[in-house]
Design a protein around this nucleic acid. Sequence first.
DNA 1: GCGACAG
DNA 2: ATCTTGTCGC
Length: 223
Amino acid sequence: MRRYSSSTYSLEGFLKLLSKVQEAVARIAYPPGESLADIKNVAAVDVAYRDETYFSAAVIYDCIRENLAEKAYETGVAEFPYIPSYLLLREVLPMMAAVQRLGSGWDLLLVDGHGRAHPRMCGLATFLGFMLGRPTLGVAKKLLVGERREYLQGLDEIIYRGERVGFAVGGPGVKTFYVSQGYGVGYGDLIKILNIFKMRYPEPLKIAHAETVRLRRGLVQKG
DNA sequence: GCGACAG
DNA sequence: ATCTTGTCGC
């Protein structure tokens, strides 16, 4: 009988295995061109913390009426620490729980974190979409990998390992944010989505973040 | 070895 | 992410 390496049971061994899973998900996550038809109800999810307790909030935003349509929450104890490039360990389950409470009345989910613009081309946004089996888009406030290359005014491509993995959006007087494909979203969809939100940081995510703070403050009623 | 490192 | 006061500006 063969013997197993102790690294299989160490944190390093575990992360190495997870890396393989991320690479496998990356291979099936990004369809070419466009794949989303109508984008009307856009969901968004975010998580806040106080010590080791997490407060996650998910919302559905109606892009036609331009208003909030639904909210859902989840609170619990964080099971993992934050390890750079392994954010999904800490946030995937808290986010998924809140999102599942929304039901399925949304066309796309915006996730606070990167998607394809990741060392293994599979960040939190991509992985969450894979677990849900639904389209997601990664929206982050800081660049994790890659370099910016001018594409259009106020819009840079993010190049990593010779390929475009996302876009940096911003310009003079406007804070830059970074978007990349999550699961089941083509780069053509990505451009369409940026236009829906007029090249600004997506309102659904602003709302989700605000709800996360309200929840932590104990201002959210049960029901 | 050194520095960087989504939230 | 979180810990934190005041402060500049619309």
